[in-house]
Simulated scan of single mutants.
Amino acid sequence: MVRTLLVRGLVLGLLAGLVAGVFAFAAGEPRLDEAIALENAAAAQQHGEHAHGEHAHGEHEHGEHAHGEHEHGEEVSRGTQKAGLFLATGLYGLAVGGVFALVYAGLRGRVGPRSDGALALAAAGIGFAAVIVVPFLKYPANPPAVGDPETVGSRTLLYLGMIIVGLLSVAVAVTTARSVPGGPWARWPAAVLAFVVPVVVASLLLPPVDEVPDGFPATLLWQFRLTSLGTQLVFWASFGTLFGWACDRAARPERPTVAA
């Protein structure tokens, strides 16, 4: 059974990843092009000021120019990057689908709704909230030209820390819901509170990251961030729906064939 669920998760995760890639290509690439244009303009301006300051040193300027041409030749074209978008979302779908299937196999019959399809949808919604929404609220995605390259490591660790907080908060919420006596009117508020409190505390304790340069268009920044969140929403909604439908279909008893 676990092998069947794993194959199902991989295949449907790949499909959902490609669906999310279509959304990201249609909604996100124009925003990314604008951000890259701003980044290139800022780099060209900085390079121009540097070249002007070194104008008296002709040999040094010539060396810098040759080095700039070498770096430019190593750049990956936007066409290649756009094609790689679908590869990235597909691989992301494979990874998430495989992990989700294993987690689902562990949850099935133990917690959550009895219906396989409802359990898949609930697990996908909780996964989206814990893995995507929780870190997004504290550390939203940034387009090119936003962020110091020297702080990539620390920012990545902080983002992963928020993902861990989200997952642990889900575990605390599930444990609370199962241990609180009474009906759903007592369990659900307690579970929500058990989820929200650790997230809020972690958000207050972890350091903020604000590296948006002065003059960067706020509209473009939030369009990029919302598109990034929307891509994840499309993936998790598509995957949860497909996985749940497949599980419900597999759980249906086969109708006996009637001989003519």
Rank of each mutant, 00 (worst) to 15 (best):
E39H: 09
E39A: 13
E39G: 05
N40L: 12
N40P: 02
N40A: 14
A41T: 06
A42H: 04
A43V: 04
A43E: 10
A44R: 09
A44C: 06
Q45M: 11
H47E: 14
H47Q: 13
G48W: 12
G48S: 11
E49W: 11
E49L: 12
H50A: 15
E54V: 07
A56F: 11
A56S: 14
H57E: 13
G58L: 15
G58N: 12
E59M: 11
E61T: 11
E61I: 12
E61S: 15
H62A: 15
G63A: 13
G63C: 08
G63F: 13
G63P: 02
E64K: 07
H65I: 06
H65M: 09
A66H: 08
H67Q: 15
G68I: 14
E69R: 05
E69T: 07
H70Q: 14
E71A: 09
E71N: 07
E71Y: 03
E71T: 05
E71H: 04
E71G: 07
E71I: 09
H72M: 11
H72C: 08
G73L: 08
E74N: 06
E74C: 03
E74K: 06
E74I: 03
V76Y: 00
R78M: 06
R78S: 04
R78Y: 01
R78H: 06
T80V: 04
K82N: 03
K82T: 00
K82Y: 02
G84S: 05
G84E: 00
L85I: 05
F86A: 02
F86V: 02
F86K: 02
